[in-house]
Write a protein that binds this DNA or RNA. Structure first.
Ligand SMILES: [Mn+2]
Ligand SMILES: [Mn+2]
Ligand SMILES: [Zn+2]
Ligand SMILES: [Zn+2]
Lengths: 142, 142
DNA sequence: AGGGTTTTGATTATCATTATCGATTGATAA
DNA sequence: TTATCAATCGATAATGATAATCAAAACCCT
């Protein structure tokens, strides 16, 4: 199902309303580069809809997380970042401490070992974070 | 080398002073249960040294991180947590979202795959975070 | 012991996030 | 279409963890 439909159904199911702000925020978020902060999205939205409020962007991103369209990330710079969830795929991140570049990686063998670790402790995984911090190739050779 | 000595040398090398507060904070930190917040440590310290300031505890923990005695962790509850670094060993964490329990795990095969991932991207790892969030065995069966 | 520097501890500032609230809007039924 | 009313918006204030400030006190070296 399309994300716009998922969001719409989610709103209806929770007795919430579809507003032009919510539609615009979803649309802009999906079209945005990944890992955008609230501020990033807010500034981009102001160009189309100059009266939109920061609080509305913030609240709507939380809704997008709640209905599974977005995922919230924290890469240690004090700003929450959001990226669209891709169905049937999961990735983690390499974060350059110098230039801020974010590289995505998938490693099913790590995911599998993770599950083994959890099982060994009778632990039920709901989510996880796996981030490698350091220097990207460009920054390392300077 | 003992941690007290490491800290002392670190302070000397940076032209900083050894104070009774710094000694007491190190001592209490090392004797503390792991993963304590600044507040945890502050309250414990007030029992021995009722005039110690929150800012001093905060600043000293940063120094302990800087000289490699402590490591700072963030488990998503909005409070930084600190734990003593154990030489020649590294671990990551399972965090129970229900009761807050923190379980440590070591999995060298994950660490190795991590290094492979970094190498494939010409990425130089400085540090990493790997946390599994979910329910501990106790909380899962409720 | 004296003097220059660092540190302490109380307080304030910062800043991202969250809550508040009057004005406005969306959804539903008449 | 219009009335109704709860949900929402956007501006602003509150919150809370962390970091900065600064005068008084402590430390260290001569
Ligand atoms: Mn990503
Ligand atoms: Mn630990
Ligand atoms: Zn870089
Ligand atoms: Zn638990």
């Amino acid at each position: 199902m399309e994300q716009a439909q998922v969001f719409s159904d989610f709103l209806t199911h929770k007795g919430l309303k579809s507003t032009i702000q919510r539609k615009l925020i979803l649309e802009t978020f999906l079209a945005s580069r990944s890992h955008c902060s609230i501020e990033d999205l807010y500034l981009k939205l102001r160009k189309k809809h100059s009266k939109i409020g920061y609080a509305t962007v913030h609240r709507t991103l939380k809704l997008l997380v709640e209905c599974g369209i977005a995922i919230e990330q924290h890469f240690g710079d004090g700003h929450a970042r959001y990226e669209p969830v891709r169905e049937n795929s999961h990735h983690d991140h390499l974060v350059c401490r110098e230039c801020g570049e974010i590289i995505e990686f998938e490693e099913p063998r790590i995911e599998q070992l993770q599950n083994q670790v959890a099982m060994a402790h009778n632990f039920t995984i709901i989510s996880h974070r796996h981030e490698l911090y350091g220097l990207c190739s460009g920054c390392a050779q300077k």
